[in-house]
Design a protein around this nucleic acid. Sequence first.
DNA 1: ATCTATTTGTACGTATGTATT
DNA 2: AAATACATACGTACAAATAGA
Lengths: 254, 254
Amino acid sequence: MPPAITPSKTDAKRSRPAQVAEAIKSWVVEQGLTPGDRLPSEPDLIAHFGMAKGTIREAMRILEAQGLVKSRTGPGGGTFVHEVSRERAKALLSNYFYFKDMTIGDVYQVRRALEPELAASLAGTLSQEQLARLEEIVAIYAEPPQSAEQERDQHIASLAFHGALAEFSRNPLLSFVIGFIEKLLSDITVYRQLYTPHNLALWESGLDYHRRLIAALREGDSGAARAIMKAHMETAWTHMGDQEAKALRGFLPE
Amino acid sequence: MPPAITPSKTDAKRSRPAQVAEAIKSWVVEQGLTPGDRLPSEPDLIAHFGMAKGTIREAMRILEAQGLVKSRTGPGGGTFVHEVSRERAKALLSNYFYFKDMTIGDVYQVRRALEPELAASLAGTLSQEQLARLEEIVAIYAEPPQSAEQERDQHIASLAFHGALAEFSRNPLLSFVIGFIEKLLSDITVYRQLYTPHNLALWESGLDYHRRLIAALREGDSGAARAIMKAHMETAWTHMGDQEAKALRGFLPE
DNA sequence: ATCTATTTGTACGTATGTATT
DNA sequence: AAATACATACGTACAAATAGA
């Protein structure tokens, strides 16, 4: 059942493949197709739109680049509707910020507002497995780092702690934004060695915050969770120093 | 100057066009190309990668779908690096949330945390033109609506007020997230007639909040701006009622 | 394990737009 | 107005991958 869309609509400006991609997208929405559903085969689309193979394929690539479909070869193969993955969405959004001058301070302005809210909303909602997962992560930086490499790994892990909290949230928007922030900071740590020069006091306080947070989450003490996270963010914020002006730029992930 | 990347790297899983797109992307980063810079011509890329035209073109479509390049025909034409636009980034991110069950309540949980912060950070930083723009927007809903259509337009405008504030921010991340939220709510209003059934008291309070906010922003009173926005959000939040459970879904914009 | 059918993936040559000079 | 330089579109042929007999 090929899409019932006219080949060339009023938006004459756009390229043919872009128009086709758009038509297929609307068709998917109209039909209420869900992940796993199959799109018409390449030959079918060629016949239906009356266009060349290359044109149809380019359209498919557009949809694929957006993470909306995935193709498989072979019998029973074809192109299938695909749920845009979290990772894909983060990567695409990173492209946008690549061209922006964003500072660590900018990121923390958002973190300070959102992370306490996340912590509060998570209190009392986590399963034993999820709490255990958090403790696993904390264990990675339970001891002071012995090398620069280990210090970096610990820094990544402490960011992953926040990423895990984000994943546990039932609020897709809050979850995504905090997860994206974690990726931003994590990428910058990996690609640019931009992590706090070792500071024993800061490391100790961070560890303590994370442990107290887990306790508050386990006990379902929403107010305490919020307060702990708030203090955690403020501490990190005040210790950022000159790094806050540092722009994070220079990578186009995928 | 063709990219100095090997045609087929270790990631054998990905399709050829995807690999080429990735190679070109890294090359752009390495070369430090900026928006407006030209990529090698199609024939050059074909020669360099030793691949067929179609393959190269599909790669270009991938980059174009991500908003990273734009092509022009004619002499002096070609494919050019392009800054990912705000609109494109929002559309791509919308694709992600299309598959999520997000409620109005979820959106407001984030709004309540971010909007007051935005308001506070904007106090005293706005130009006369920007303040005038805000007042222009407020004028649209200065009088009670006369029709359902006008009511919708006013609702969109009051959302645009927040969108304008977001655009005025110098924090790209905060700006984008709030702008994206505005788009989400705005789209849902247009596509689903999902706006508050008319409530004169609520309309009046919203108008009042916006006006007082402009005054606080003009006077540079950061604390007042934050407090006003906070109260504004809380009021809207408490008046949401049963709508907060309503999922916003059903559109794949571009 | 081999063949076979199905469906996407790649290659290449040619023709058609489109905008600049 | 015409030539030029570039992307865009078409059509066919063949290659690769995968599931099933």
